[in-house]
Design a protein around this nucleic acid. Structure first.
Lengths: 135, 135
DNA sequence: TTGTACTGTAATATTATTTATTACAGATTA
DNA sequence: TAATCTGTAATAAATAATATTACAGTACAA
């Protein structure tokens, strides 16, 4: 993460509001107050998941890859978070300690359970719904 | 975060298993495979929240500050995570853009809702319960 | 067919965050 | 008073996140 989820949602909201009209990375970057190359990179990732379509060359730009009503925030989340929301677990505790030996396994299951409730919550919110909150 | 939640749980589990016997930062550090000073620093934080008690000087060390059955993982989580699990939101989008102007507010509400389900999940798990998973 | 305006992506630099280390003062015990 | 702890600050090192630059490739339009 860190701001990436916010950035992704921001981009997708702009595209939804654009209503099919192509938006350019420069325009999006200025709304985000970020760098166009960064925007294109994020979009590149979102496009790999079918959430955005792009058109190259003069007159090119970006549109949503599918209807805003069929994109959930869980879909967006899954495009970028590949570790638990509770953090990484790449510690290497002492295998000679009973707790150290088993902690990674137990933490991993705990984290999985938490990630599930996060995804469940996010899957109940569509991009269309989120976008509706804006004037 | 990142490994801090795991570290905190690890420490607390050790203390629970110690069953009232004082543990030293050296011992804990060797189970974690980390530095004693780092352990003491984490413990210092947990102690501020009453989860751990410490005794200074020769023969000193650490014990749980209250019964493991009355410590939930939400309590532990609250001692260290002061931003959303979904990330920070310190972007400064363009205030002249309708989306940019409102995104921080809307993201903030979204994140709050997600954090609530995380805390709800964690509050259903006690340290005692977690600790029981270990042989 | 050439100039213009875009995207795509790699390379790199910068900044921020996290983790690790060292050091030592203060506390407590025997 | 020597030994063994904690408490904490200062600093260093490692890692991760973000920003920037650059330019090749693509498409349009005159």
């Amino acid at each position: 993460m860190n701001a990436r989820f916010q950035i992704a949602i921001h981009i997708l909201t702009l595209l939804d509001k654009a209503d099919g009209e192509l938006l350019q990375s420069d325009y999006i970057a200025s709304s985000l107050n970020a760098n166009p190359a960064l925007v294109r990179k994020e979009i590149s990732n979102l496009r790999n998941f079918g959430l955005i379509e792009s058109k190259e060359g003069k007159g090119g730009g970006y549109t949503l890859g599918k209807a805003a009503g069929s994109i959930t925030l869980a879909d967006v989340f899954k495009t970028l978070k590949h570790e638990s929301v509770l953090g990484t677990s790449k510690n290497q505790p002492n295998p000679n300690c009973p707790v150290g030996r088993q902690i990674n396994q137990n933490i991993s299951e705990l984290y999985k359970g938490v990630d599930e409730v996060v995804l469940a919550k996010l899957s109940g919110i569509t991009l269309a719904g989120f976008s509706l909150q804006f004037d």
